[in-house]
């Protein structure tokens, strides 16, 4: 009979762990509380099903345990019961799926007023690129990568000249302004993941992927690589600092454009050549 008791204890322990343990997701800092809500709905539905199924099993094990003289009932099927169970399951599944699909529609539809930020991944650090004064990101490709052009911005594209190149792994974002992240890699798969923002997407060499979100509170958030990218994968960290609009503009002024960047990078080489 021990097993029936243990089954009950497993349900009780799991529910208690869920409710009272300190491990829960980190407070959200973006507009994707829809995702959190869908997740909570799913937790409730699946939790109820888990408890019901295991407790019922425990009951059966206790109630119909073997005793001398006890005989099982011959009971091939019960079509009505099975159809009912199927229908109830279908309703439960739909209750999770339908809100999920609505939120997904939002997730993949970028609002028109979203600003653009390119996140650039390579083994094993992050860099970023912002459209400069013209508001358009220049084209880029692994083809163009070199010492003075680490992000592979197309040097023949006039839109690229004023793009801001941000190295060092940290980037600023203005609060309450929707942002579309364009994700690009030049070597292997990476994944730009800030737990507070909930959104994440792989970056795939040879193509540009995207996510969007609106930061809803200021702060300094750690970015991780969430797609295995080689030995130093866990050490590929960056930071996103969400600030008020004024502070953001200040920070923006300090960044180098692609043109300036290429010049400063090639200067030591030119000096060497002159000597």
């Amino acid at each position: 009979m021990l097993i029936a008791v243990v089954l009950v204890l497993i349900v009780a322990g799991s529910v208690a762990f869920h409710l009272y343990s300190p491990w829960w997701w980190t407070p959200i800092a973006s507009n994707w509380d829809y995702i959190d809500n869908t997740l909570v709905i799913t937790f409730w539905i699946t939790g109820a099903v888990f408890a019901a199924v295991v407790l019922f099993t425990a009951y059966c094990v206790w109630k119909f345990r073997h005793r001398p003289g006890h005989k099982a009932e011959f009971d091939p099927e019960n079509k009505r019961l099975e159809w009912w169970l199927t229908a109830v399951t279908a309703v439960g599944v739909a209750a999770m799926l339908v809100p999920g699909l609505f939120v997904w529609k939002q997730f993949v539809t970028v609002p028109a007023n979203a600003s653009e930020l390119e996140v650039f991944g390579q083994q094993w650090n992050w860099a970023y690129r912002l459209p400069g004064a013209d508001g358009v990101l220049g084209t880029a490709d692994a083809e163009w990568v070199s010492g003075e052009n680490p992000l592979g911005v197309n040097p023949h594209d006039r839109f690229g000249k004023d793009d801001l190149i941000i190295e060092g792994g940290e980037v600023y974002l203005p609060v309450d302004q929707p942002v579309k992240l364009l994700l690009r890699s030049i070597d292997v798969l990476h994944n730009f993941y800030v737990p507070e923002f909930r959104a994440k997407m792989d970056m795939v060499p040879g193509m540009v992927t995207y996510i969007w979100f609106t930061p809803t509170r200021t702060g300094n958030f750690e970015a991780l690589c969430a797609e295995y990218c080689g030995t130093a994968h866990p050490f590929m960290r960056g930071f996103v600092t969400v600030v008020e609009a004024a502070e953001y503009q200040e920070w923006l002024q300090e960044q180098l454009t692609f043109e300036d960047y290429a010049r400063t990078a090639s200067e030591p080489a030119t000096r060497l050549a002159e000597r």
């Binding site: 829809y34 997740l39 799913t42 539905i45 799926l97 999920g100 997730f107 909930r198 959104a199």
Partner: peptide, 13 residues
């Protein structure tokens, strides 16, 4: 059911 539901999968994947 968490991971199959595309939007719930995003933070958990």
């Amino acid at each position: 059911l968490f991971l199959g539901n595309v939007v719930v999968d995003v933070p958990l994947s």
